Simulated assay, not measured.
Amino acid sequence: MPQLIAGNWKMHCLTADAIALAEAVAAGAAGITAELLVCPTALHVAAVAKALAGSPVAVGGQDCHQTPQGAHTGDIAAPMLRDAGASYVILGHSERRQNHDETDELIREKTIAAVEAGLTPIVCVGETLDQRTGGQETEVVGWQIAGSLPKPFAGVVAYEPVWAIGTGKTATEQDVATMHAFIREELVRQFGEDGHGIRILYGGSVKASNAAALLAVPHVGGALVGGASLKADEFLTIARAARSG
C-alpha cells in the first residue's frame, strides 16, 4: 500500500492563497507514488477541490460535527464536507483535544459520522510532555485508540507526539518506531486481523530534511504534515521520499 502524505493547512490561507497552493501541489505531483492529500479550512474545501479536479491530489476537512445537520452554529457536518468535494477528514487532532476539550467519546462519534457520510477519517492520537515524562505514553495512546475508534474502523490513525510540538524537543526515529510498533499491536489486539491493514501516519514536525528517515520507520504508513505543507516544494519533497508500498 502506498504511503499517504497528508497536508494539514490548519487556519492558514485566504481563498486565492489556498487555490494557488493547491495548484502548485498538483503541478508537481507527476511521478509521485505516494497518495497525496491536502486539508484546507472548511471554508476553502470547495474551492480547493475545484482547483484539484482531475489531479491525483485528494482533499480533506480538518474537523466535522458528530451529527449530519442541526442547530449547531459555526459547525460543519460531514455530509457538507463530502458535498464540497472532500474525501477525508482529520479528527481528534491534538489542537482540537487541547483547545476545544474534545474527548475520546466525542471523537468516536465524529468518526462514525464521517464514515456514514462517505469520508475516510484520519483519527489523531498522542501523548503530552507530562504524560511521556510520567511514563504514561503507551497507556494514554492505548486508551485513545480504544475510546476514539469505533468497531469496525474504516480509516487511518495518525500518531502525534504532542510533547515534540513547540517544545524544542524532537522525536527520534527510535521514539517513532517504538510508538508505531505499539500502536500496531494495539490495533491488532483491538480489531483483530483488520488491525494489520490500518494505516498509521506520523505527525510530528515532518519536514523535507527528516522525511526520508521517518517514512522508512516500520509501521509508518505516511505522514500528517503541518507547517511544511504550506510550501508546495517542501510538501512535494516529503512526498517524493515516501515508500511506494
Rank of each mutant, 00 (worst) to 15 (best):
I76T: 15
V188R: 03
Q190L: 12
Q131E: 15
D83R: 10
E234R: 02
V38C: 07
P68Y: 13
D233L: 02
V156H: 06
V206T: 08
I200S: 09
T133Y: 07
S209V: 04
V123R: 02
G147Q: 09
A22S: 06
C64H: 13
H44K: 10
G7L: 01
V45W: 13
P40C: 03
K110N: 10
A78F: 08
A27H: 07
V225Q: 11
I145L: 15
C13G: 00
A228M: 04
V59A: 01
S205K: 12
L91F: 00
D104K: 06
A177I: 04
V59N: 02
A26H: 06
R132N: 10
E116G: 11
E35R: 15
E23K: 15
V59Q: 01
I198P: 01
R96E: 07
D101E: 11
A6D: 02
V25G: 01
G226P: 09
A24M: 03
P56G: 12
R132S: 04
A158Q: 07
G61S: 10
V141M: 09
A51D: 13
A239I: 05
E102I: 00
Q62W: 12
V157Q: 05
Q136F: 07
T41Q: 13
R132D: 01
W143L: 14
T73L: 12
T167M: 01
L119E: 01
A146H: 12
G135A: 10
T111A: 12
V57M: 08
I183N: 00
V220F: 05
M1Y: 08
V206P: 03
K169R: 15
L214A: 02
M80G: 05
R243A: 10
L36V: 05
L215H: 12
A86D: 05
Q131M: 10
A223T: 09
C64L: 05
H65F: 14
G197R: 15
I183Y: 08
E186R: 14
L52M: 05
R97G: 00
W163P: 01
R189V: 00
F235L: 02
E116P: 03
K169N: 07
Q98N: 11
L224E: 09
W143N: 14
E35N: 13
K207H: 14
S229H: 06
R199I: 01
A241C: 15
R243C: 08
A241L: 02
R96K: 15
A16T: 09
A22Q: 00
P161H: 11
Q3H: 06
Q3N: 09
L215D: 10
G197P: 00
G245F: 10
E23G: 10
A146R: 14
I107A: 03
D104R: 02
G168C: 03
E95H: 14
E173V: 11
V141D: 09
H65I: 00
L230W: 12
